[in-house]
Structures are given as C-alpha cells and as structure tokens.
Nucleic acid binder design. Structure first.
Lengths: 158, 158
DNA sequence: CTCTTTGCAAAAGTTTTGCACGCTC
DNA sequence: GAGCGTGCAAAACTTTTGCAAAGAG
C-alpha cells in the first residue's frame, strides 16, 4: 500500500462518514480498523471474529450494518475469491485490480492499465453493450507461498 | 452461444457426467436444462424456483448437490454480480469474459484477448506473484436496456 | 438534549446433512 | 441387483429486523 498507512486510511474514512452525516462511533472505528489492517479480504463473520480477539466487543449486527454503510459510501467493495466471494476489501483511490493469493488469501492491489480501455472499446463495438464498470481480478500465488510450493493451505471457503 | 445450441451443451454435459462416473438422472437433467437455457446467471434458489414452474418437482438439496457437482466438473462457474455473487453460469470452452447487464441481469460471453496476457506478465514482474487465473467481468447495459435508458429495474440482489 | 447507533434476541433466509426409498446402470 | 442419488426434514449457519438503552454531536 505504498506511502499511505492503514491508519491514514482509517482517518480519511472517518472524515467521509462525518461528511455524510454518519456518526463516528467505537464499533464503527473498530470495524474499519480491522478491515483496513487486514492483509486479506474478510467476510462479515471474520470481521466479527477478529473483533472478539480485541479488547472491545461488538455485536454481529453492527458489523453487517457498518459493512453496508461502508459499501454505500464506496469505501469498501466485495471481492471475488476462489470458493466464495464475500470478502470485504477497501477501495483505494483510482482504479485498481486485485491480486488474490489462492494459498494464504493475501490481497494485493495493482494499478489499472490503459490496455483495458482499448479492450472495453472493442467489447462495446462487438456487443452493443455500454460498459460502465469492470472487475479484473487475478488469482495466483504470492511471493511467499510461491516459494513454499503453494496449495498446502488453500483459502478457507469464506 | 453462437452456433452451439443450449440443447447441444446439455448433451455434452451429460456425456461429461457419465465419463466421470456420475449417473444421469431426471433432477440433474432438469437443473442443467435450467442453467443452460437461462439468459442470466442464477442462484441455487432461483434454479429451485424455476424448477417449481416446470412440471417436474425437485428438492432444494438436489439443486445444491447438482450445482456442486457441476462446479467440480468445471461445467459452471460462480459469477460476480453487482449486489451479490452467487450466480451460476455455464463455462464455455476456451477463455472468456463476462458482460453482465446491470439492468436485466443478462449475461453475454465475450472472447478472451491477448492484451490481457501481456498485462499479466507485467503484473507478475511488478509483484512477484505467480498468476494462475484471472477473472474479468464487465458491468454495463445491454442493447435493450441501453435503449430504455437503463437503471429502472436494477439487478435483484441474487 | 436530540436522535443516531448499539447489543441483544428473535426471525427470516440459505446451505448442509442424515436417512430410508427409488432409480440408473 | 448393487449402490448412487433423491426428497424430506432437521440442523447448522448467515443475515436481517425490532426494540430499549447507550452514546455522539
């Protein structure tokens, strides 16, 4: 995540909440902290489990409500993983694509690429659709899992 | 779709089941028929609902079991849609990308593109990951919904 | 002080599992 | 006929909702 720290992101997010008239509360901060500091995309259940390991407790309903709110504010998106697709992942500025490790679940963001734009144009011409959005995800092995030979511990279904 | 009819696909699928030692039964044929003849990706629940509208009945458990079997045989894949990602969609030969209409849910398949291969190479060099798979999906409006002005009837969450 | 947000518990919805019977091969 | 696959019903799990009380602004 380059020069921006997880903590900076969390602060920018609280700013966005306030701008939209949402209150910044303890449970919301905890959920945002867990999401922004995770190396992999988490399900609402996993976020809840992570909260149990911290000092502060949290109701599962608040996790769902906070995730819905963050989704609506476009601060997170749902990402597609092998075996399930409920991972919640922070949206970063600009268009990015996701690289998911099929062994450890780690997510890495890679910059968008102009080559895709040309392809989209081609698809529009070919099909007559109007393309508004695209999701490009890569599934593979991260550097560490590649070294280990991979596939020993495939992504939990999540 | 092009030159291959839905019926041909269904026949090819039953062939694959036999080759893998699975029996070809009424419920399985019905599920396969519903999946291959749908214009949009369906959830297991939607497949079950569709079966109720046909003459033959079907247990919801059989839908789940059949979908699992088809997924294992790589005859279908789960596709990611705005608002949810449980759509079941037939896998066609070769690598394709999906174009999902955000208004009516219709899915269209578009051919893979070599430009992506170069991009993958770039991503591997940049990140050190080994990329095994990629999912590229486009979200937009199909020809019909585009004409209607779109977004009147956004995809049910499914 | 107002009114949003919370945790809890119940409800609704989805997916999985066990089992006796039926059907494919 | 052997044994896989079925529907049913129960269980497990996930997500949503209603409400009184707590807490942010």
């Amino acid at each position: 995540m380059n020069s921006i720290s997880d903590r900076d992101i969390a602060e920018a997010w609280t700013q966005t909440l306030r701008e939209h008239g949402y209150r910044v509360t303890g449970p919301r901060k905890l959920v945002m902290e867990i999401i922004t500091s995770s190396a992999s995309a988490l399900t609402p259940q996993e976020i809840y489990q992570a909260s149990l390991e911290k000092d502060r407790s949290l109701g599962i309903a608040s996790v769902y409500r906070t995730v819905d709110m963050l989704t609506e504010l476009e601060l997170v998106e749902h990402i597609h993983q092998p075996g399930g697709c409920h991972g919640i992942w922070p949206v970063f500025k600009g268009h990015n694509h996701h690289l998911v490790c099929s062994d450890c679940g780690q997510v890495r963001v890679v910059p968008g690429e102009e080559g895709i734009e040309q392809y989209i144009q081609k698809v529009e011409d070919l099909t007559g659709y109007r393309v508004d959005e695209h999701w490009l995800q890569f599934i593979g092995l991260c550097t560490i899992c590649k070294r280990k030979g991979g596939q020993e511990n495939p992504l939990e279904t999540g």
